[in-house]
Structures are given as C-alpha cells and as structure tokens.
Amino acid sequence: AQLFFISNGLSVGFASIQTLTDKSTGLKKGIKGDLTTLRPTIMTAVPLILDRIQNAIESTINKSRFARIFFAIFFSQKKFWSYYGLDTPLINLIFCRKFKAALGGRVKIIACGGAPLSPETHQFIRNCFDLKLLQGYGLTETSASATIMSLDDTSVGFVGQPLDGIQIKLIDWEEGNYKVTDKPNPRGEIVIGGHNVTNGYYKNETLTKESYKEENGVKWFLTGDIGEMFPNGSLKIIDRKKDIIKLSTGEYISLAKIEAELKKCPFIANVCVYGDSSKEYVIAFIIPNASHLKSLADKLSKSGLSFKELCNDSEITAGVLQSIRQIAKHSKLHKVEIPNKIKLCSEEWLPENNLVTSALKLRRKNIQDFYQKDIHLMYGNEHKP
C-alpha cells in the first residue's frame, strides 16, 4: 500500500500510538503530535486507536453539562442527515471543525482493518470528523486483500463487498452452529479464493494442508473467521473460531464478542477475556482508562494513590467490575459471558513486550503466560495451567 501511494506521487508519513495526537502520553508538554505535524488526507487505523480517540473526546465532553448538551444536539443532526447521504456544511463548520483539528485538519478518509470495529465507534468517528470511514477485511495469507466498503456506503458493522478478482464463499461450521442455510442470511466460515491467496506457510506443511485447499484450479484459504453474507453482497464478520471456547457448563462463548461489548465501559482502554474450559465462568484482564480511574479514585477518597496502587486496590477493582456488569447487562450478554473476576493491569500492552501485535491485536497466549499467577489466583487452587 505504501509503495502504491509513493508511486502515484503521494507523501507517506508514519505515526506511533504513543505520539499520535497532541495529547498522547509519549509526548512532552507543548510538543505536537504526529497527526498535527503530518496533516494527512488519508489515514489508516486499527479499531483500538479509534476507540481511544472516541474515549478521549467523550471524557472531555463529560466534564461540562453545556458541552454534553451541545454535542448531543449537533451529533444527532449530523447522524440523521449523513444517514441519507446529505452534506451538512453548517454543522461541519460549527461542530466538526473542532474535532478535525485533532487529526491535522485535512483527513477525508480513514481506512480501518485488523480487527472488528464496533458500529457505535464507526458512527461516532464518521460523524464527529465529517469523513469517510471505510472498513476492510483481509489477511496476510490473502495478500491483505478481500473486501472493502465503497465510498458511498453509509452502513456500519460491515466490511464491504469482495474486491475485483477475489472470490468469497461460506462453509458450514457445525460445532459453532453456523450454517450456509441459516435464515435470514447464510452464515459460516469465510473462505477466500483467487490469485491473491499465498502458497502456504513457510516450512509448515501440516498447517498449510489444514488451511489451504485447491478446487478446480482455484486456490482457497480457510480464514477461521465466521461471516454473514447479506443480499447486497456485503460481508459482516460475526465471530472467530479461535476465539470461541467451551466452558464446563457445555456452553460456547466468543471471547472477541465479549471484549467488543466490554470496551463500551468508560473504565476500559483495552481488555482480554480469558476462559478455562474446566470452569464455568470467564475472567478479564483490563488496561484501565487512566482519567476515568482517577475520577473513581476521587469519589472513593483515594486520590493520593499512584496508578499502580489504584490498579491493585480492591475497592477500585470492585467499582470497575460493577460498571462492567451494568454495561454487560445493557449489552444483553448472557450470565456466563460476564466476567466473574477482573484484574486491572498497570503495565502497558505493547508490541515491544509481545502482549499485542504491531497492529495492536491481542496475543492471547502471551497474555495468558504473562498473567499465569493471577489466573491461578482468580480461579482458585483448582486451576490447571
């Protein structure tokens, strides 16, 4: 993608999540962020970055009753007219311009991929910044290409239609109860075919045979992602086989689905849900939102504690867990999907410590290994590593 832009005469800049905006934690006071310096017109981002931008805006707005009312009025109007594909020049001038400055003032398109983007965040970013937010889908094994939304697509929750020359089909996954005969739309494991599919995994014949198939001269890759195909050809990612576990009660739960809902909690900057198949409940490891955690500390008369001390405080943890349960209930999660216990983590999850990938995806096994002692304590002495 970088070479495509460069070969067409466009400048390409690189940013870090620690220095992205003027208020990023990796910058000294008064130093401008990457977006303010580069002033891009097209931006790529993973959902976690957009989630953090939304959380930062909402934290600022919630400090003032007037700001909340002002925001609610203009945001609802922007959302209404944008749904019908209509421009809102007056709202853009009064409302959106204030937000656009945080991204450099010139961003027109954000391309998002690497993980599911919640419909709420999609709607929020698109309307606050008055831009096109396009979700795409693809994997390294398919040369990073499969689907992308069109510029005039005003829907949310979808990853668009297949790109030219790329074939997509769904196959039954009996264990997860996803079938191509499901109503109202077919559901199943996403299989991608075409010249974009790679030859296999380097020096891993076993995994290559499991994931790659060839039919009638077409090479296919079994993604492990579960999708739903809609009548207009748009694809929606609804689950992932590797993120589904079976609890001791016999119920299957999706870790990624739970995480997506829990991220709506203002106390959560990032979360990893863990489940032991020999137990009947799940637990969660949480990177807290520092500003919201501080607000909770002030309410509980614990403002003198450091961030690490707050994360280890039982009252603070109980307050966050209570908020999580309220969000889970509102999101209609089942009882077995709601974490029974949580741990607030004071350390950052970064590619440098191998707890997330360079695209900020969770490395579940690494997180499990890192917090093994905590897992043992949270599940009790019966836990089997």
Rank of each mutant, 00 (worst) to 15 (best):
E251I: 13
P89I: 00
Q326G: 06
K257T: 11
G176R: 02
Q322I: 10
P47C: 00
V12D: 08
K132P: 04
R65I: 15
S150Q: 14
G224W: 01
E210V: 09
H334K: 14
K308Y: 10
A72P: 09
L86I: 11
F370N: 11
D130R: 02
Y84K: 04
G224D: 08
E58P: 00
G136M: 05
F129L: 01
L134G: 01
L296G: 01
I42H: 15
I42S: 07
W81N: 09
K299N: 13
Q135F: 05
P231K: 05
T41Q: 12
Q326H: 08
I49M: 13
E259Q: 01
M378F: 07
L305E: 10
R364V: 10
Q326M: 14
L235C: 01
F80M: 12
L163M: 13
N366A: 15
P40H: 01
L310Y: 05
E347Q: 09
A67W: 14
G105N: 09
G138S: 06
P351G: 03
F80L: 15
A328D: 04
T206C: 07
T147F: 09
Y371A: 09
K100C: 02
T21L: 11
G114Q: 08
E175D: 15
K63C: 15
D130Y: 06
L262I: 11
A102I: 13
F70K: 02
R187D: 03
K299P: 08
N127E: 11
N62P: 05
T317S: 13
S7Q: 15
